[in-house]
Every structure is written in C-alpha cells, then in structure tokens.
Design a protein around this nucleic acid. Structure first.
Length: 406
DNA sequence: AACCGGATCAACCGCCCGGTA
DNA sequence: TTACCGGGCGGTTGATCCGGT
C-alpha cells in the first residue's frame, strides 16, 4: 500500500539536531504535548519530519531518561532479558524504565554482545558456542531447548498480553479515565497515546515483569533447578507432572498427574523424572502438550476478567488480570536464597577482561578460565552454562527487590 | 603531529501493525 | 473489505571520538 513520504524530498532537515531545534521541540511538547507527530514539526516551527521529532524526543529529550554508563545490574538485566526475549528492545526497555530501546540496543551491540562472545556464549542463542562439550551428556542441550521453548512461550504470551491490554482498554475505557495515573496496567504502545509530555514508556510495573513470574513458577515447578539446589530438585523432579491451564471464563484449572481439565485452553505438562544433576530431567520427555498448537494463546484474548494461573506440584502462582500476581509463599522462599554466583561472576570476570585484557584468563581467557578445553573443561563449561541459565531465571526469581526493573 | 582503525551512539531507514474512514 | 495513515520497532549507517602507532 502506498505511503506518503515521511521526510524525504521536501526539503526537511536531516542529521544531528541543533540545540535550537531541541529547544523548540522541548518547548512545544512541554506546552502542548506531542499530539500528532506528523503535524508537530510545522506547529513547532521545525524543519524536520514528525518521525525525526518523535525519535529525538523518545531517545534523547524525554525528561525521564537516564544517560551514562550502564550499571552492572542493568547489564545483567539486559542480557538476561535478551536471553528470554531476543532482540525485542522495546520490550527489554520496559524493564529498564529510564533507558531507551535505542540505547539498550546500542549498548548490546557495542558492549554486551562482544562480552558474551568472549565468554564463549553465543549472543544470539545464549548458548555456549562449544556445544559439543556440553552435548556429551545431552543435558545442556536439553536445558537450552527447554529454555528456548520457554522463550517462545514468553514471546507468545507477550503478544497475548498486548492483545489483552487492548481489549481491556476498550472494555473499561471510561473506567480507566477515572483511574488515570494508577492503572499500572499499560503497555509501551498504549502509553504513547498520551498527549502529555511524559514518558511514553510505562512507569508502573510492566506487564512483562509480572509475566516473567510465570517463568519463576516454571522454574520452581521442577524443570530447572535453582543453583542452591533448593526445592526444585528432588521432589519436583519426581513429581509426575504439572500443568498450566488457561481458561477463558472459568477459574483456573490446575491439573496434576495426567491432567484432565475439561477446558484446557493451554496446557503444559511436564512429565518429569529424576535428574541427578538437577538441571533438567533427562530420561523422560519433558512434554509440552498443546504448546505448538497454542502458541498464539488465542483463547486468552477475552480473558479480561479471567485469571491466568500456573501451578506446579509445589507452587502456585496466579495472575489476576487486575494487575496483580498472587504467589504462594513457598514460591518466594525458594528464590530468595539463590546464590548470585555463576552468571554475575562470569560477567564480572568478563567485565574486567573487557577493560584490561590480562593474560591470566583473557582473550579466550574466559573460555579458558571457565571452560578450558583441557582441564576438566567440559564440566566447567557445563557449570558455567548451568549458572548462566540459572542466573537468567534468578533474574526472574529475584525480581521485585533485586532488579531495577521490578 | 598526523594518521589509522576500532568503538561509540545519535539518527535514519524500511518494514510492520493497528486504527480508521 | 480495502486503502491509507500514524506510529512503533529493529536493523543499519555514518559522524565523531579515542587510543595506539
């Protein structure tokens, strides 16, 4: 379909913004809000296209932007979220409220990607490059595969939530007008409709932050073991199954064993067996019933008044769509104690290597220090891999207090 | 001092999607 | 149903910075 040109061939200015232009844009938005971006340049007296103005505002002029170096915490958050969400910078940015997606993207491309590569981790898949070592026992592959499933599911869930938000807004539009300011239930896209010169990104707890708790429950549910070995190992892995059921208009359906929900909209059944290493169960098939067929979570769309729940053999987590998670206490206890070693140390090491490529570990150093081919490397690398993924789940687990994003 | 190459990051480009007439 | 519009997103570019030679 044909589109009218945005800013080309009409004598509009391109390139770096001058302070004067910034001032004009700022002054206009502060007074009027941005309104229609396309119409803004003319009104503000700028020889720019609306898109350029929008970018300048969202990436630079917005008052709630934090500039400067990324903290280690932020770095970890980015990496971990990238492992889950991939190059979905806007989604990642919603968890780093004062950072823009562009900034995060740049930082990833210029810093973190390289650092991960140096650590021997594929920045795209977040899997160790040297998979051969790890696939000896197949466990890490299995783990990675599961996490991949998880990421896919998370992706699908995000889409479903976006849909949910839209419909929720439609349904309760008038109601929301009374509740302006404290809804805490918005998305980055919807937030941008505001004409006020405030952040386009939501300040309140982003949906994703809550939703990641699903993964937490997932973790606790037994297919991944936390680093401290607490809980999730033994009992859960022995548990026959856990399932998640999304129901449209009915209360959450939680099944165990062979899961016999009558209205299974989406159901994950982890039929686990014992795992001596505790990462994932190895022998039995971790089955994700209905996963492929329900990636779209189609029935979820009308769930405004519904409840999404996740239950495992030990823990139960419920998100009611008024925007709150209801978690069982046991869920928390297992996560609080999780050691932060592993990934953090990896990062710190890589960090120092980054600055000063000392020989003590450097160059291939990180590979060497953590997974050197010769000295027991396989298990070391395997441990690193385990820690790495555990750390990703730790992010989820430790969210409310430990992470800047929650 | 000049040059060079890598690093950084603001800005642009093109595509996509939802809303709407 | 279709075409168009506005806006968002991710990928890429290019100007600038910076350290090494």
């Amino acid at each position: 379909m044909g589109r009218s040109p945005c800013c080309d061939k009409v004598g509009l200015k391109k390139g770096p913004w001058t302070p004067e232009e910034d001032q004009k844009l700022l002054a206009y938005i502060e007074e009027h809000g941005h309104g229609s971006w396309r119409a803004l340049p003319a009104k503000a007296g700028l020889q720019r296209c609306g898109k350029s103005c929008r970018l300048r505002w969202t990436n630079y002029l917005r008052p709630d932007i934090k500039r400067g170096k990324f903290s280690l915490q932020e770095e970890q958050t980015i990496i971990q979220l990238h492992a889950l969400l991939g190059n979905r910078w806007s989604a990642i940015a919603t968890h780093l409220p004062k950072r823009t997606d562009n900034e995060i993207k740049n930082y990833w491309n210029t810093h973190l990607k390289k650092r991960l590569a140096k650590m021997g981790i594929d920045p795209v898949t977040h899997k160790p490059k040297n998979d051969a070592l790890l696939s000896i026992d197949g466990q890490s592959n299995k783990s990675a595969a599961n996490l991949s499933h998880m990421a896919q599911w998370e992706s699908a869930r995000l889409e479903a939530e976006a849909r949910l938000v839209r419909e929720s807004k439609l349904r309760s539009h008038s109601l929301q007008q009374h509740q302006l300011g404290n809804s805490g239930f918005s998305s980055s896209s919807s937030a941008s409709t505001s004409s006020a010169p405030v952040a386009n990104k939501p300040e309140g707890p982003p949906i994703s932050s809550r939703s990641l708790d699903v993964l937490k429950a997932w973790n606790n549910g037994g297919w991944l073991k936390s680093t401290d070995g607490h809980n999730v190992g033994g009992g859960d892995l022995e548990s026959p199954s856990s399932s998640l059921t999304f129901s449209e208009n009915a209360p959450p359906i939680i099944t165990s064993g062979l899961g016999e929900s009558t209205m299974p909209m989406i159901e994950f059944v982890g039929s686990s067996g014992s795992s001596e290493t505790g990462i994932v169960k190895e022998e039995g098939e971790q089955e994700w019933k209905g996963y492929e067929s329900s990636v779209h979570l189609p029935e979820y769309k009308d769930g405004i008044d519904n409840t999404m729940s996740f239950a495992s053999s030990l823990h139960e987590l419920t998100m009611s769509l008024d925007g709150t998670w209801i978690t069982s206490d046991s869920l928390r206890t297992s996560t609080d104690a999780i050691a932060e070693e592993g990934f953090t140390n990896l990062l710190l090491n890589a960090n120092s290597d980054d600055r000063s490529l000392s020989e003590e570990g450097g160059g291939e150093s990180n590979n060497n220090s953590h997974g050197n081919g010769s000295g027991g490397s396989g298990s070391d690398l395997y441990e690193d891999n385990k820690n790495y993924w555990n750390s990703i789940l730790n992010l989820v687990n430790s969210s409310p207090s430990d992470s800047p994003m929650f």
